[in-house]
Design a protein around this nucleic acid. Structure first.
Lengths: 160, 160
DNA sequence: TTAGGTGCAAATTCTTTGCACCCTG
DNA sequence: CAGGGTGCAAAGAATTTGCACCTAA
């Protein structure tokens, strides 16, 4: 699944500006890793991002993907989600949105709901630090897991 | 930090009922693992829970702690949070509450705010599956990280 | 009694690190 | 051309698994 070309071009500008601002180099790897995350509507883990980037940069290494993902999170360009079979998942921060998460299998879906975007932050939160984003996470058991009724997770998280 | 005795006793009833309902055995390990999580106001990882349980059950093994934690999550008695230096953190589901999370260091604090407890779930969410809980997650940079200004995370997540 | 649960230790899986070479600014 | 960035390969951490013994129901 792919975003419109205009948005991808937008991402390019976003990361260029962010690197300049942070005083770090803009490399092909950084560009492609960000593009890969911004270009997916699901929530890829490091391995998946690596495979995607590899199509454009065949010599890229998995460790660079990791380093770049953490860097981008640090720059505020992407966000991490809870783990999926032990591996962290990432998503681009392009628009305000929220999540539905299955507690049984870990399936995660984006949810767009304007009411949630307008939630006001309690004073207490400001005492902890700055506020960048406010997200609502709805947890439950997805329809797929509900259908396979008695099937309980036996050995650790079998996710999404 | 400890909850009042009444709440701990309450946890005992909670897990007894849950095991009976799920048709699984109530073992000392399950009881103590749940108690350990319910008894902490911070967000322990598997290792920390293990160390705590070990004080009461010296022969408990780390793998049993893992198995039990996932089981309890499955039963809906505890919830997982995002990773902290790669390891998943857990918390008991005793009361509705929300989180402040530092995107720089991963520090997580509970937030009690009745307005958030009353948030209404959009119809779209129900199409994904059942709805158990709705939590608000506020992300930002905590005061500690803000003070150590230019210090950017260089090598992976250095959390909390 | 007896199937589910546990402990142990080895195996996997995910992520990080040290170092020498490369390339952006 | 200088210092940050990358690739490689090996290390390290977190979590899972197979199996034989144990114990709650």
């Amino acid at each position: 699944m792919t975003h419109p070309a205009a948005e991808i071009t937008g991402s390019l500008e976003v990361i260029k500006a962010a690197c300049r601002k942070a005083g770090i180099k803009l490399t092909a790897q950084r560009l492609e890793v960000f593009r890969e995350v911004a270009d997916s509507t699901d929530h890829p883990n490091a391995e998946t991002v690596y495979l995607g980037v590899q199509k454009r940069l065949p010599t890229v290494s998995l460790d660079t993907v990791y380093r770049t993902l953490w860097l981008l999170e640090d720059l505020g360009l992407i966000t991490t989600l809870g783990p999926h079979r032990g591996s962290t998942r990432f998503e681009a921060n392009l628009k305000p949105h929220h999540h539905y998460v299955c507690t049984r299998c870990g399936m995660t879906r984006d949810l767009y709901h304007e009411d949630f975007d307008r939630i006001s932050v309690p004073a207490e939160a400001h005492s902890f630090g700055t506020v960048q984003t406010t997200q609502v996470e709805i947890r439950g058991v997805c329809t797929h897991c509900t259908e396979t009724t008695s099937e309980r997770r036996s050995k650790g998280p079998v996710r999404e």
